[in-house]
Amino acid sequence: MSRIVILSGVTEVDDPWHDFTATSQAIADCLEDAGWTCTVESTGRCDRAGLTDADLLIVNSGLASPPGPGTEPSAALLDHLASDRPVLGVHAAANTFGAVPAWARRLGVRWAEGVSMHPPIGRQRLTPAAGTVLAGLDEVTVHDELYSHLELLRPADVLLAHPLDGRDHPLVLARSEGRQRTVYDALGHGVESYASATRRELLRREVRWLLDEG
């Protein structure tokens, strides 16, 4: 079974809005229940996370996430981002690794300060796009934030969106370029998100697609 590395957040001082320790563990629990092996490591220690042997990198991190132990991002992180191995960015990952341009290029989406926002957190009912890897998942019901007005840097397939201000705002984006697969999933603000069975199924379907496991 594939090995997944989850890079997990920063301290409460750096990002007081997210409990990355709890949500990263919720991600790991969800995926390990489906049979995958997960390793959770601090984002600031990504050089020690075993990325060279990772089949999938998940980043569940936030605003002030350091790229590595020094001022430069770790070689292992840059190697993974440049490789064909898949990447999944969750929620605040659109606002992390500001000092690592390769991260924004790979994820393909970015939180734009002063532009991006979200309505008040609450219970959401979302309909996945038809004819995608989410076919058969009729609805995602979840207590979460809905990120809006994100900056889209690269074309991608919109798997899940929500309406606001007269247009649809992507929440889950999937991109395949050659053998390289990338997903950004804007859900996952708190552990209550992962209490939803349909949200957990959404995450597992994303991972199955990323790992090309059908």
Rank of each mutant, 00 (worst) to 15 (best):
T141C: 12
L153S: 02
L202I: 03
S193E: 04
G166T: 11
R175I: 07
S148I: 06
R175W: 01
L187F: 00
Y147R: 01
H149S: 09
E151Q: 07
S176G: 03
T182A: 10
E145K: 00
P170H: 08
D185P: 00
H149W: 13
R199G: 05
L164I: 15
R154F: 00
A195V: 02
L159V: 06
S193Q: 04
A197T: 06
R179F: 05
R204H: 15
D168G: 09
L146V: 12
L164S: 14
A156K: 14
V140T: 10
G190P: 03
D144K: 00
E177C: 10
E139H: 13
P163E: 15
A195H: 12
R167V: 06
V191F: 06
S148Y: 00
V142P: 05
D168N: 07
R167E: 04
T141Q: 12
L164Q: 12
R179P: 09
L146S: 05
R200N: 07
L202W: 11
L171G: 04
V183K: 07
R167F: 04
L160D: 04
S196I: 09
L160K: 02
S193H: 02
P170R: 14
T198Y: 13
P163Y: 10
P155A: 12
P155S: 10
R175T: 03
G190W: 03
Y184Q: 01
D185F: 10
S176V: 07
Y147V: 05
V140K: 12
S193N: 08
E151C: 01
Y147I: 08
V158M: 04
L153D: 01
A186C: 03
D144A: 08
L152N: 07
G190R: 13
V183I: 15
H143W: 13
G178W: 03
A174C: 01
A156Q: 10
V183T: 05
E145Y: 00
P163C: 14
L171K: 12
R154E: 09
L159R: 04
H189Q: 06
S176Q: 11
Q180S: 15
L159C: 04
